[in-house]
Amino acid sequence: MTRTLDGLNFDMPPTADQIVALAHLHRQNLDEAIFHQEIHLGDFGLAQRKRVYDFTRELNEAQREKFYEMYNGELLRTADEDDLHPADAEGGVSVFAVFLVLAIIAMILYFAVIQSAMR
């Protein structure tokens, strides 16, 4: 039994090569959609995931788990690292930086306000 999803033909259950090909196709489609201003990327990604979800409903639970493990793993493997926004940059401001800024503000206030008021 075969099934078609996004122009690709799949055996039921799909083979590893077919799942990898689907992940690559979805990644390519998403990359192309980025440059089209009329496409809302969130809706586009959700539509892709909905088609995959509907496709996997025909698989039993073990096959579905294996499918998603391979599909998601391949998408993660092919994902580009964003050099401008590395994951460790999301950690927030260090405690040292906060105290440094507070010390600078205190010095400015002392020399500008308090010292001139004491004259």
Rank of each mutant, 00 (worst) to 15 (best):
T2Q: 02
L5P: 01
L5D: 00
G7L: 00
G7R: 00
L8T: 04
N9F: 11
F10K: 00
F10N: 01
Q18T: 03
L22W: 01
A23G: 02
H24Q: 14
H24M: 09
N29Y: 06
N29S: 14
N29Q: 12
L30T: 11
D31S: 06
I34P: 15
E38V: 07
H40S: 12
H40A: 12
H40V: 15
L41V: 03
L41D: 03
L41Y: 00
L41R: 04
G45H: 08
A47Q: 10
Q48S: 13
Q48M: 15
K50Q: 15
K50V: 15
V52G: 05
V52F: 12
V52N: 02
Y53I: 11
R57P: 13
A62K: 12
A62G: 09
Q63D: 11
R64N: 10
E65F: 07
E65S: 09
K66F: 13
Y68G: 00
E69C: 13
N72E: 13
R77L: 10
T78K: 09
T78L: 08
L84K: 15
H85V: 15
A87F: 12
E90I: 09
E90G: 12
G91W: 09
G92K: 02
S94G: 07
A97S: 03
V98C: 03
L102N: 02
L102R: 03
I104T: 02
I105T: 01
M107P: 14
I108L: 06
Y110W: 07
F111I: 10
A112Y: 13
S116G: 07
M118L: 11
M118C: 11
